[in-house]
Amino acid sequence: MHELTVTESILEIAVRHAREAGAARIAGIHLVLGELSSIVDDSVQFYWDMISENTLAEGAQLVFRRVPVELLCLSCAQRYSPSSVELACPSCGAVQVKIIAGEEFFVEAIDIQMEGSKEAK
C-alpha cells in the first residue's frame, strides 16, 4: 500500500528535474531498487498509470533495475548473495558480515524530450 506514496515521490522528483531541464515531456524514468527496499514493481506501475495522467510524465516508461542483496563476510572476505533462509557466510558460517548492496532506493535518471523535438507533443 505504501507504493502510492513511493510513486508520488517518484513523480515529484521526475517532474522537478524535467522542469529544471526545460523538458516538454518525460519519456522514461530509471529506478534503482535494492531487494531490501520491499517495493512491488507492479504496484508502482499500477499507481503510476493513475497519477501520472496530465503531467509531464504521462505515458513515461518506468524502468526498474533490481539490485540483489550482496554480503561481504568480515571473517573470510567471501562476497555472496544470501539465500532466502540463511544469511550466514556459506564458506565459513560467520555472522559478522557487511551489507554491500541491496539497500538502493533512488531515481537514477530520466529520459526527456525537449520542445520542438519530433515526438514531443
Partner: peptide
C-alpha cells in the same frame, strides 16, 4: 530524440 539526464535522488527524500 530522448535525452537522458542524471538524477540520483533518493525516493522518499521529502519524508526524510
Amino acid at each position: 530524440m530522448n535525452q537522458r539526464i542524471s538524477v540520483v535522488e533518493k525516493i522518499l527524500d521529502a519524508n526524510d
